[in-house]
């Protein structure tokens, strides 16, 4: 299930990089999104920023640094923003789609490692995991919550992964067309795993490094929020 080959430095062919769309949902990220987008665009020119109805200058900043800036008129949640980004990328002819956090948690170097197995044709979906190698320094409170989420996924969705709530994912065009996120808010991560699992397409986890900064910790989910998310997910599964 894991990709141990370090293909980061191998580099991807230009046509792959140019037909890859990096999808970045952003909600009130005006402070740091410029740096993140510019870093990614040095390697991957097609960055789609979905401003999810931010109340700050996120959209103006995004429009300055990428040609693909999309704006939700009202806030609809991260799941909704991701699906908008995926639809947009597919409409622009993306061959590969990578979802990437806009708060600077993910490393641009890891995108190549995420794409490599898909480009080689080994699988259609890769899911980033911060637990596969020891390179991420994960705060104790987050580690506990994330482990609980892994256990929750194993019981409820019957899928065994090492990191179920990592925003770093890569899809082939075929896989992206099969994904349809309907849970607007944070519980979409569990829904996505269900869809990946039921798509019948091969997937695997790839080690990625997650950088925790004061900024990302403040923007991320608290443990109490996690319980709310779990409840929302269960409700979404049982109600019509």
């Amino acid at each position: 299930m894991t990709d141990t080959a370090t293909s980061n430095d191998a580099g991807l062919p230009d046509d792959v990089r140019e037909s890859t769309f990096i999808v970045m949902p952003a909600f009130n990220e005006a402070i740091c999104i410029e740096e993140v987008v510019r870093d990614v665009r040095r390697e991957y020119p097609n960055v789609v920023v979905i401003d999810d109805g931010s109340t700050d200058a996120t959209f103006d900043v995004a429009r300055r640094c990428t040609p693909h800036a999309v704006r939700h008129a009202v806030n609809r949640g991260q799941g909704a923003a991701l699906q908008t980004g995926i639809d947009f990328a597919l409409a622009r002819g993306a061959r590969f789609i990578v979802t990437f956090d806009s708060d600077g948690q993910h490393r641009v170097e890891d995108i190549a490692a995420m794409l490599a197995p898909i480009v080689r044709g080994d699988c259609d979906i890769t899911l980033g995991s911060r637990f596969l190698d020891g390179s991420s320094e994960i705060p104790r409170s987050r580690r506990f919550t994330l482990r609980l989420a892994v256990l929750f996924t194993r019981i409820v969705s019957r899928v065994t992964l090492t990191d179920t709530h990592n925003g770093f994912r890569a899809f082939s065009r075929k896989a992206a067309m099969k994904i349809e996120i309907t849970i607007d808010r944070m519980a979409h991560a569990s829904e996505l795993i269900d869809q990946v699992h039921h798509s019948g397409l091969p997937y695997r986890e790839v080690p990625v490094q997650v950088r925790y900064t004061d900024y990302s910790l403040q923007k991320g989910q608290s443990s109490r929020g996690a319980i709310q998310i779990a409840i929302n997910y269960i409700l979404a599964r049982v109600l019509p």
Binding site: V70, A73, F88, D184
Partner: peptide, 24 residues
């Protein structure tokens, strides 16, 4: 009411998505 609210939210999301992609 809750079920109807959920359907309404879903429809709102689809509308907002459509507008966002058209505008872009």
């Amino acid at each position: 009411i809750y079920v109807r609210l959920r359907r309404l939210r879903r429809e709102l999301t689809l509308l907002v998505r459509h507008m966002a992609i058209m505008e872009a």
